[in-house]
Simulated assay, not measured.
Amino acid sequence: MLALVAAVVLYGVLSWPAPPEVRVVEVAIAALLVAAAGIARPWAVVSGHALHRPGAPPWEATAVMAFAALLWPPLARGLALGAGMADVLRDVVPLIYLFLPVLLVPVLRRAGPRAATALAMALAAAGVLFALRWWRQADWGFGAVGARAMSDGARYYLNAPSVLFAGIALPLASLGLAARGGLWRWGMALLLLVPAALCLGALAGAVHRMALGMAVLAFAAAGAWWLRRRPWLVLGWAAAALAATLLSDGLLTGAVQQVAEKSRLTGANTRFEEAAAVVELVGGSPWSLLIGEGWGALIANPAVGGWRVSYTHTLLSYVLLKAGLLGLAALLAYLLSLVPAALILLRGSPPMAWAVLPPLAMSLGLHTSFKYLDCGLLLTLLVLAGEDASRKSADMG
């Protein structure tokens, strides 16, 4: 567990959401992830031996088979078509990230509920660290939020889903601490709002429309849940937030106007044109349609001015391009196998669910962050926390 926490924190301190090359810090993070997962579990997954593990939950078997379907046929296809090894690795490593739950959960569940708590804290810390690094490159220009659209910067720190996770999870944790009462807890609750504000303020400053919309949805849903349990506390929190907004010299209205203006100018960011280009390319031959162009394949992407790149901006179009209809079916089977964990978490621990699900919806829906380490770690947290909620429900029953 300590190795995993160290990997996540190191990711937030020194790495980038999408590093263009492998440096010493990325090697160190990889080594820590291997230390966390061990050797036996990854080998069992890659070889298929994990399918024979007695008592494994259904999602594990689905994940093992989906991983094999997404790894081997597109890998063979890509190498056969002459894909560059660097491009192949840029695709295969994110695939491993996407399947981190099947590599890490069986190992981490031995630690019990503290594993989910520790992973959640580490992911929130990574998100805050990314936000701080963005603020530093923005010269700490807090006054620009709502006044003008700020640059994402060269490293795209705010694309990391852990930033949105921290922006949602920390206020909800703050509310949970305040609900338990006590001077010390109230003090900690107020302190947690500071890093949360840094994350949400950064997303507003760079006008990340989907992230901000997801945050509003999460706060509304979690707030409604808390309202039934601690109505005066929620109303007091809402009144304090409203007062802070009114005293912020038009920050909220400015941020909303920036979101509206960006939507007017950019629309869907050529996602539909990008998807059409993928369909046209894979539709050129039966093999491409069935198993894709393979890992490492490039596409003249209209979303980036027609440059030949190895990525698309949505997970579905990306997998269709690289792994075809078979890969797309495997991906959907894998993601659907995780739905029960999400439903259990929504019933058993709604604040955690509303912190985890929005950044995952963003990453797996209309964002490139499906290729990032923290997307796979959020999926891992979803399963771990869902299993904890299921055990608590069974104990209470």
Rank of each mutant, 00 (worst) to 15 (best):
D374V: 12
A204K: 02
L71R: 01
A341M: 12
W307S: 04
T368A: 10
L247Q: 07
A206M: 03
V9K: 05
L328V: 12
A389L: 12
L177N: 10
L200A: 05
A111W: 12
L364M: 14
A333F: 10
L364W: 08
M65V: 13
W225L: 05
A144W: 13
P19I: 02
L315P: 01
S47D: 03
A355D: 12
A239L: 14
A138H: 09
E60I: 10
L51E: 10
L377F: 10
A215R: 11
Y97T: 02
V282Y: 05
A6D: 08
A211L: 05
G48Y: 09
W134M: 05
V309W: 00
A44D: 14
L335K: 11
R114P: 00
Y156Q: 12
G213I: 07
G386H: 05
A3P: 15
A144D: 15
L123M: 01
V22P: 07
D139Y: 13
D152I: 03
A222C: 14
A268K: 02
S393Q: 15
S349T: 11
L51H: 08
A222E: 07
I96S: 09
Q137I: 14
V105A: 04
S363E: 02
L281V: 06
G296S: 07
R109Q: 14
L217F: 14
A66H: 06
A202W: 02
L177A: 13
A385Y: 06
P358M: 01
L247E: 01
G48N: 08
L325Q: 10
A144V: 11
T314L: 02
R209E: 04
L227I: 06
L175A: 15
P359D: 15
L343R: 13
W232D: 05
G250C: 07
G284V: 09
F165I: 15
E21C: 01
E261T: 12
